[in-house]
Amino acid sequence: MQIFCKKRRYAIVSDTCHKKYERVIWTVNLALTIIIVTSAVLGAIYAKKTFNETKDQVRLAKKTYFADQRPWIVLSSINPSSDNGKFSFTLVFKNSGKTPSIGLYIGAKTVPSAQWKAAADTFCEEGKKRASRPESQDDYLLLASIPQSNFEVSDNGDIHVSFDEADGISDPHIAGCIVYGDRIEGEKKDAPHETKFVARLIIKDHVVSVDRILISHPD
């Protein structure tokens, strides 16, 4: 940029010319400052956006890794039997995950169909309490499940009912909850996992069968 000022005699530059020059320089500096500041702000915004996107990707990768490695315990089948005037049930569970569970609680009960959800919720809460209370943690932590293995539970008295008791239950169901923890990279999960389950029973002429088993998605 060229600034032309008229010269007076003896080559004395006028004050007006100096002021004009200073205004132009000030304007140019201000424009450059605005450009630099704007570029810095836009760069910071872009950097923050990139950082947040990277952090989200890392969080997703970590979540995916944990989901792939953690234990997943579900009720796979129920084997009913009838003998000595009562119905008995063996619950078969499976850990389909890649790591053992840390601690294990299973609660189940034979209830009318209208009460299955309340019963499952109650067992889930009881399992969480046992996992968190120091006085009951020993019993909770003594149990675990091996990856890709089945295990049976048949000594739960609440699921066994006599023939007379079964006749008094309207549309009987077995309802319950599995509560267990995990440890990934040496860190114990604070909130245990839980899986609710319910199975409809069909009882006829003192013969019992399991119609279907429904489970909630393990959390």
Rank of each mutant, 00 (worst) to 15 (best):
K63P: 02
L42R: 02
T38M: 08
V13F: 08
D68T: 12
V41K: 09
T50L: 09
Y46I: 00
I34L: 15
F93S: 01
Y65H: 10
I35H: 06
I45F: 06
A11W: 10
H18N: 04
V41L: 02
I45T: 05
N95M: 03
S76T: 13
W72L: 12
G97P: 03
Y21I: 04
T50A: 14
A44K: 11
S88F: 03
Q69T: 05
Y21E: 03
Y21R: 10
L30Q: 09
T27P: 02
T50Y: 05
S76C: 09
T27V: 06
P80A: 11
R59K: 13
D15K: 11
T16F: 12
T16I: 11
N29F: 15
T54V: 07
K19A: 12
A47S: 06
S96A: 14
A44F: 13
S81W: 11
G85V: 09
Y46A: 00
I25W: 06
F89D: 00
E53D: 14
R59S: 08
T64A: 15
T54D: 08
Y10I: 02
E53R: 10
R70M: 09
A44V: 12
S77M: 04
Q69F: 06
S82A: 15
R59E: 08
F89Q: 00
F93H: 01
K86Q: 12
E53I: 14
K55W: 10
I25M: 10
I35V: 13
K19H: 06
D83L: 15
N95W: 00
F87P: 02
E22P: 01
G85A: 14
W26C: 12
C17S: 06
P71V: 09
Y46M: 00
D68C: 06
V41C: 04
A44L: 14
T38W: 08
G97Q: 02
A67L: 10
S81D: 09
K19M: 10
T33A: 14
T90V: 12
N84V: 13
K55Y: 13
S82Q: 10
V92E: 04
K49R: 10
R9C: 07
I34Y: 09
S77L: 03
S77G: 04
L60F: 07
N95F: 08
L42V: 11
A31F: 15
K49G: 02
I12Q: 09
Y21S: 07
V28S: 06
W26Y: 14
V58D: 09
V28G: 04
V74H: 01
I25P: 03
R23S: 10
S77R: 09
C17P: 01
D15Q: 11
W26K: 15
A40Y: 10
S14M: 03
L75E: 01
W26V: 11
K48I: 04
Q57V: 11
E22D: 12
F87M: 07
Y46C: 00
F93M: 02
W72R: 10
Y46G: 00
